[in-house]
Design a protein around this nucleic acid. Sequence first.
DNA 1: AAGTGACTCAACCGCCACGAG
DNA 2: TCTCGTGGCGGTTGAGTCACT
Length: 321
Amino acid sequence: MGRAPCCDKASVKKGPWSPEEDAKLKSYIEQNGTGGNWIALPQKIGLKRCGKSCRLRWLNYLRPNIKHGGFSEEEDRIILSLYISIGSRWSIIAAQLPGRTDNDIKNYWNTRLKKKLFGKQSRKDQRQQQHLARQAAAAASDLQIKQEASRGANEADGLAAGANYTWHHHHAMAVPVHPMSAPMVVEGGRVGDDVDESIRKLLFKLGGNPFAASPAPPCIPPPPMYEEAPSFVPPLAHGVPLNEGGMQCSSVLPALELDESFHFNHVKLDGLECLFGMGDHQNMRWNEVSPLVCPNNAVASSSQGMQQYCLVEEPADLGMQ
DNA sequence: AAGTGACTCAACCGCCACGAG
DNA sequence: TCTCGTGGCGGTTGAGTCACT
């Protein structure tokens, strides 16, 4: 015999919420709170909804200060960093991103970020790139016209730089990150802050060269793999014990200290297998991986004359035991 | 203009944890 | 200690939308 349903499914309305239902729920909760009992709530307000549905609607949509869409790069980095560390514990990840809901982050990860990381562009991203490319071309063309007018034909050769103006340059101007974007590099250092240092460290800690099956650029040092260091025990995060799955038992996660409290959850890394030399992504080509994951992927876009950004740190410097 | 497929995201489902009795 | 009710969570679904052909 199955579990009793939380509400009478037959008399409960399902599907999208109407503005009237939203208004009822919102005004009631704003005035009275939830009363600590979601199941009883819909009856109190006269909504033909399941209590759980009310809760979800409030938390994901009606609650004040909810942000929808438009994830920033900073948020991308936080999500990635936490996903690598703790897996798909969206509520914990959401707790680190004010105004974001676990549902939102989950959707964003599943539909956009995962593809972005592995270079599989969504059509939306592709369109964005095309749009930016057009803008860049227009800008370059405009620049060319102006320069030609002011300098004369003899200096037109100098427009190579203008012709090379790509969406990457736009990217540096707070345009949403493009999956195949590369960090701008000037003389070994990056312009902008495309890739968080901590993420790079994390990825190396996780198993070093995440793209073992692909020929990596020679500047990357061969990192240690867990398989080669079976005695490695992930540190306790703030003294909190880990359960059998290696997951932290506490919901308290100091996101900013991930580098220190890092541990590896083998189970919950759907879609990131390629980072650890397993799964179908093994055959992924080097240039198919986002620089958000691998800053060295500047090589993927270096046809624009960009310098390659090289990791210089040794694995030993990353705290590996 | 219509058909088709890809994509997004709100919402649902079902499991698990936890507290109360 | 056990059972039950509820909250919370992650996985999944499907309707709506959009772009492409």
